[in-house]
């Protein structure tokens, strides 16, 4: 199972990085989204892959790692998802504004000189 998730992270990150290096703003935005998937999955995976062990306690219970999945990476990733959403939104608005201002959707605000 670990191999599948690792490969998934790799494919997401690879596609993300490729897009990040492209010249069009929309490509960069999509790339950033893909890269954040990869990173979120990676952080999540540091807690180990456990099935059927969601960290929901019984009332009054003191949980332990033997019974439940690691909740800490999950909490971190939750924060990361939210921040990722915010940055994607900001990037989108920025690229729209830049497009309106510069007349191009190149990341540098002007087409490359050839």
């Amino acid at each position: 199972m670990e191999l599948v998730v690792a490969l998934a992270i790799g494919v997401l990150a690879g596609s993300g990085v490729w897009l990040l290096l492209r010249p069009r703003t929309f490509q960069v935005a999509i790339g950033l989204a893909l890269l954040s998937y990869a990173v979120n999955l990676f952080i999540f995976s540091t807690g180990g892959l456990r099935t059927g062990a969601a960290a929901i306690l019984e009332r009054g219970q003191e949980g332990s790692l033997g019974q439940f999945a690691d909740p800490l990476p999950q909490a971190l990733v939750l924060t990361a998802i939210v921040i990722g959403f915010a940055t994607t939104a900001l990037l989108l608005v920025l690229l729209l504004a830049a497009r309106g201002l510069t007349g191009t959707d190149h990341v540098d605000g002007r087409e490359r000189d050839r």
């Binding site: 998730v5 690792a6 992270i9 790799g10 990869a38 990676f42 995976s45 540091t46």
Partner: peptide, 9 residues
Amino acid sequence: LAALSYAVM
């Protein structure tokens, strides 16, 4: 990143 995450997991 794939290798790294595999190693971590």
